[in-house]
């Protein structure tokens, strides 16, 4: 039937695209779309782009905080306490006269460090153990599987609170604690990916070539599992930032003399501040929420691009 029929049909955009492709193939100029495809797919997800933009802006603002604000976030001016937003202090001042905007910008340094640092720490531990033991299997594999089961059976906050009491309250300890409590899911994820990938033919081929385990596992298999790992890292970052805020509410987070979003927000516990002085707490609440939201959008976008089965 068909050639004639196709010719008769009005050419669609798809036809044009295919024509273009054919043309390029014939001229030999067609290149394999590599990672660009994932990127372009991500770029087509408006929320993810918006999220990425916000996260980038916040990170840049925190890193280059001195360029963004002229105020020292620790500069106390008792005679200027609880002043509402004005041209001088665009988000007003807090209970001891510090500039709220400056505190949020500088606070971002620590909060993002805690969130991203812990997530990367957890990824480093989880992924390396997961990749190696998942590929090798055997005794080490089952040992770590048990350990991860033990860690993951704890309700998260209970484990975190326990570790906070053991290690004490400090910035470094908090990152360590989040890392210790967060590596389990990344380990499981990586291990599962390894288990399925190691039976692939290309891996068998590599093995037949006599490449060492380490190279096969980290250089040849792991990159193929990176997608879901990236998604998990972004989502963990968001979770840790929220957890930092929760812990500072309980008075068990980063020591209160270090400005973090959670510590700035903590003053909302004082009902007088909560009801009468919105500028002291609301901006940090909005910042945390927007930042976490933005990361979640990015994570979602990443998931969609890397997971072909997710068509939502």
């Amino acid at each position: 039937m068909s050639d004639a029929k196709i010719m008769m049909r009005r050419p669609t955009r798809l036809d044009k695209k295919f024509d273009l492709l054919r043309e390029k193939t014939e001229q030999g100029t067609l290149k394999a779309a590599s990672s660009n495809r994932a990127l372009s797919k991500l770029a087509s997800n408006k929320l993810a782009v918006l999220g990425l933009a916000f996260v980038t802006i916040m990170i840049l603002a925190s890193v280059f905080a001195p360029l963004v604000t002229q105020y020292d976030p620790q500069k106390v001016d008792l005679r200027m306490m609880l002043k509402p937003p004005s041209a001088d202090h665009i988000l007003g001042t807090d209970k001891i006269g510090r500039d709220v905007f400056a505190r949020i910008i500088y606070g971002g340094r620590i909060s993002i460090l805690v969130g991203l640092g812990s997530a990367l720490g957890a990824a480093l531990i989880g992924v390396s153990i997961g990749a190696y033991t998942g590929y090798k299997g055997g005794w080490w594999d089952s040992t770590f599987l048990r350990i991860s089961e033990v860690v993951m059976s704890f309700p998260q906050i209970i484990l975190v609170l326990m570790l906070v009491t053991i290690l004490g309250q400090s910035l470094m300890n908090l990152i360590i604690i989040f890392t210790l409590t967060g590596w389990g899911s990344l380990y499981r994820l990586t291990r599962a990916q390894m288990l399925s990938l190691r039976e692939e033919e290309y891996v068998q081929a590599l093995r037949a070539f006599g490449l060492n385990t380490f190279t096969i596992c980290f250089k040849h298999i792991l990159p193929n599992a990176l997608g879901p790992i990236m998604v998990n890292i972004t989502l963990s970052t968001a979770m840790f930032i929220l957890q930092e805020a929760g812990l500072s509410f309980l008075g068990l987070g980063v020591p209160l003399n270090i400005p973090t979003w959670g510590n700035i927000l903590n003053v909302a516990q004082d009902l007088r501040i909560l009801q009468n002085y919105w500028w002291v707490w609301l901006p940090s609440a909005v910042t945390i929420s927007l930042f976490v939201l933005a990361i979640n959008f990015v994570g979602d976008g990443l998931r969609d691009t890397t997971d072909p089965t997710m068509q939502g």
Partner: peptide, 22 residues
């Protein structure tokens, strides 16, 4: 849904408390 999980739960709680109880 995503906004819901992005707000620290104690802030959510405190604001609800101020609005609905106080």
């Amino acid at each position: 849904g995503m906004i819901g999980v992005s707000i620290p739960e104690f802030i959510f709680g405190l604001v609800a408390l101020v609005v609905f109880a106080l």
